[in-house]
Design a protein around this nucleic acid. Structure first.
Length: 562
DNA sequence: TAAATTGGCGCC
DNA sequence: AAAGGGCGCCAATTTA
């Protein structure tokens, strides 16, 4: 009996199903059954379900209380395969893939759906077939399996599409679970910070007061939320500023600065996470953002609506576990430098990242006479492509001690500047530069980067601003994206670990997860997170001394997790 | 009038 | 202190 089946929604509540062989061909007749969820639930021996789109089909299974172990998401895989083939711009729907297979006209992708506050189903209107007959879908799948073999690193490509598919399952489950959110606590918080909701000119009291203080300092009415007005007011006071960013304002020494900065901070809370947000996004004690795995080019997730990945620290007070339950908040320690160690195989950095302790401290002991802040700036500067300031100065010291790591990101930057594409460790490929020609060759041979002789630094020649920006992008892409690779496998592993428990993954933010669980399971959940991190490291990077430790906290309130 | 862009700032 | 990467969101402004 095959452990891999394809399934598609059919008319009404029905399903089309078929067992698959190793090449993805039907290994038996196509079955039609009247109840999708029952059809899946009645085949527990199936390990991997192949379907067009998790977001389309899985919520319907979850509605019926049916979970699956693994899936293969054809449209997610199509996106990754197209990218890997240097064909980022092409439509990635299954219908488009099927059309390409038949040399038929390729339909453009449907426009992305806007976020709809409160209506969780907006992303999941069932689209039976979505324009592809079941057998056509199987053809697309079979061809995708062959395309994996033609990827630069077939094994990693399989890991990537499997991981992205697992991410889709996690996202659907988290979308359903929601993050525990105490609206009453949130309202109290808003009142503390902002005062009465409607005061002054219809704004919260505290904002009106601060606006008055700003105006008083200038001697005329100034709208602090209008950058143009603020720039003009400073000009009238004899101070030229090029923007109203906080770091620029801070240097001015004008009485308007303090209330202005305070206003901006609170205004941000008011508009982005204030009363309207609460009204729109919190229902029945849960905040339900819509997670979109792989929503960014680097593979990081985004959320569609609700700004779930930008919850201000002060607002986290409202994230509270249910009575008798706890939040296990787990944060991967210094993920990006650890990932850089694993992908560059720099001996010194691997040694440093082979321990669970403070990585920046260890780096500073080796290269910066124990100055941790300096070491951190240097590492982040290397990863982000800093071009000036202390970070750049310290890059030289970093390069002496960790030549292969720096050479790795330097080579990625050079690739970007030369118009080449770069890939993450698992093979997620960056899109071409805007306006780049079609003839770009995808990929850099990453095994060769950071190799012996990487000692000599990368010195940009005469290059334009956009070229340098492209270099910074590709430099960061290989690290940020490979970290996202690891995080994806970590989530998949954690999901397996939590199977058969009452614990629920309720939040994910790049290198941090929150699991909601009964109090007495919290410690074992924290252990499960650590195991998941180890597994992800092993599966993604193979034999590496690099460790991926977490800082975990068992709390009732997210804000108490530090 | 609606869509796209800009400036600013929240998170990583 | 200040400058690099990735996003989303809001309000205001500009463009179509």
């Amino acid at each position: 009996m095959s452990d891999r089946w394809a399934v598609a929604a059919d008319e009404g509540n029905g399903a089309l199903l078929a067992p698959l062989d190793q090449e993805g061909r039907p290994a038996g007749d196509v079955l039609r059954e009247p109840d999708l969820a029952a059809a899946v639930a009645s085949r527990p021996e199936v390990v991997r379900w192949v379907w067009r789109s998790t977001a389309d089909i899985y919520p319907r299974l979850l509605d019926a209380g049916v979970r699956v172990e693994r899936c293969y998401d054809i449209e997610a895989a199509e996106t990754l395969l197209l990218g890997s083939e240097g064909r980022h711009g092409e439509p990635r729907s299954a219908a488009a893939a099927w059309a390409r297979l038949r040399n038929a006209p390729v339909p453009p992708d449907p426009p992305p759906r806007a976020a709809e506050p409160g209506s969780q189903s907006s992303l999941f209107e069932p689209r039976p077939g979505a324009g592809v007959p079941f057998l056509g879908l199987l053809d697309v799948y079979g061809e995708q399996l062959r395309r994996h073999l033609r990827a630069q690193w077939p094994d990693r490509m399989r890991l990537l599409t499997a991981g992205e598919s697992a991410g889709m399952l996690v996202a659907a489950e988290m979308n359903r679970a929601g993050l525990p959110w105490r609206a009453d606590v949130h309202r109290e918080l808003l009142h503390e910070l902002l005062g009465e909701r409607y005061a002054g000119r219809g704004e919260p009291r505290r904002l009106a007061e601060l606006a008055d203080e700003v105006s008083a300092a200038f001697g005329r009415r100034v709208r602090p939320d209008l950058p143009a007005d603020v720039v003009k007011a400073f000009a009238e006071a004899g101070i030229r500023i090029t923007s109203t960013r906080r770091w620029e304002l801070r240097t001015l020494g004008h009485p308007a600065v303090e209330p202005l900065i305070a206003y901006k901070k609170l205004y941000r809370i008011y508009t982005a996470h204030g009363w309207s947000w609460l009204q729109d996004w919190v229902r029945d004690g849960r905040f339900r953002p819509e997670y979109l795995p792989g929503g960014t080019v680097s593979g990081r997730w985004v959320t569609n609506g609700g700004g779930a990945l930008q919850i201000p620290k002060v607002i986290r007070r409202a994230v509270v576990a249910d009575p008798g339950w706890r939040l296990v908040v787990a944060d991967a320690d210094q993920l990006e430098p650890r990932v850089l160690a694993a992908i560059s195989r720099d001996p010194g950095l691997m040694e440093v990242a082979g321990q669970a302790g403070d990585l920046y401290k260890a780096v500073s002991d080796r290269a910066f006479s124990g100055d941790r802040d300096m070491a951190k700036l240097a590492v982040l500067g290397a990863v982000y492509g800093q071009t000036s300031g202390d970070g750049l100065k310290n890059l030289a010291a970093l390069r002496r001690r960790f030549p292969r790591a720096v050479a790795y990101v330097d080579e990625a930057a050079r690739a970007g500047e030369e118009g080449r594409l770069v890939r993450t460790w698992l093979g997620r490929t960056c899109p071409p530069a805007a306006g780049a020609g079609e003839q770009d060759e995808a990929g850099i041979p990453q095994e060769e980067t950071g190799g012996p002789g990487g000692r000599d630094g990368f010195t940009p020649g005469h290059t334009s601003g956009t070229t340098r920006a492209r270099g910074r992008f590709t430099r960061n892409f290989v690290v940020q994206g490979s970290a996202a690779d690891w995080a994806l496998l970590m989530l998949a592993a954690l999901r397996r670990e939590l199977r058969e428990t009452r614990a629920e993954l309720v939040f994910f933010q790049h290198d941090e997860v929150i699991v909601h669980c009964p109090r007495d399971q919290a410690e074992s959940v924290a252990e499960a997170v650590r195991r998941a991190g180890d597994q992800a490291g092993r599966i993604a990077f193979g034999d590496t001394p690099v460790r991926f430790p977490f800082t975990t906290a068992v709390v009732e309130c997210y804000a108490d997790a530090k």
